[in-house]
Amino acid sequence: MTIATTTQLADGRELIYFDDGGRVHDHSAVDTRPLDPRSEANTGELRFDALTGDWVAIAAHRNTRTYLPPADQCPLCPTTGANLSEIPGSSYDVAVFENRFPSLGPAVGAIGEFPQWGTKDRAFGRCEVVAFTPEHTGSFGALSTERARTVIDAWAHRTEALSALPGIKQVFPFENRGQDIGVTLHHPHGQIYAYSYVPPRSAVMAAAARTFYDAHDGRETLLGSIVARESESGERMVAQGRHFSAYVPFAAHMPLEIHITPHRHVPDFAALTGEERDELAVMYLDVLRRLDNLYDTPTPYIAAWHQAPLDSLLRPAGRFHLELTSPRRAADKLKFLAGSEAAMGAFINDTTPEQTAAVLRDVSAELPIPTAKKVSVS
Rank of each mutant, 00 (worst) to 15 (best):
E276N: 12
F250T: 15
A228H: 14
F172C: 10
L272S: 08
T351S: 02
H25S: 15
D311K: 01
S233I: 08
T2H: 09
I348K: 01
L223P: 07
P368L: 00
P188F: 03
F18Q: 13
S39G: 03
A239T: 10
Y301K: 11
P262Y: 04
H157I: 11
S364D: 11
T66Y: 09
G53A: 01
T299I: 12
P327W: 04
L291W: 00
S340R: 14
R38V: 03
V171Y: 00
D214R: 13
D93S: 00
P78I: 09
A317D: 01
G241H: 06
T7H: 13
A357W: 08
E45T: 15
Q307K: 03
A365T: 09
D296K: 06
E45W: 06
P316G: 03
A59F: 05
F347W: 01
G318T: 02
N63Q: 12
T356W: 02
K373H: 08
G182L: 03
D214F: 01
L165T: 06
V363T: 13
E135V: 12
R147G: 12
T261Q: 04
L285K: 08
V108A: 01
A357T: 09
A50N: 14
D36C: 00
P262L: 04
A304C: 15
W305N: 14
K373Q: 12
A372Q: 07
R236Q: 11
Y195C: 06
I226C: 09
A59I: 10
E366T: 06
V248Y: 05
D180K: 07
L165H: 04
A50M: 11
L46N: 03
E257F: 08
E135I: 10
E220D: 15
I258W: 10
C127E: 08
A304N: 15
A357H: 07
T66G: 08
E230K: 07
I87P: 12
A338V: 13
M344H: 06
D31A: 02
A308M: 04
G241F: 04
Q191D: 11
V363C: 02
H263L: 10
R23D: 12
H253T: 15
H25Y: 14
A41P: 06
A131G: 06
C77T: 13
G339S: 13
D72L: 00
F212H: 10
N293L: 06
A252Q: 15
R177G: 07
R47F: 07
N349P: 00
S163M: 04
V129R: 01
F347N: 06
I152D: 05
A156I: 12
E354H: 00
G178D: 14
S196M: 11
T325C: 00
P249L: 06
P88H: 09
Y301E: 15
T145Y: 03
P249H: 08
V377K: 02
V171S: 03
L360E: 15
D296S: 11
E98W: 02
C127D: 10
I87C: 04
L337N: 14
L360Y: 08
A206K: 02
V94W: 05
A148C: 14
V359Y: 01
L162C: 04
L334Y: 08
T64P: 11
V282K: 05
A10H: 02
K373F: 04
R126C: 05
P199L: 03
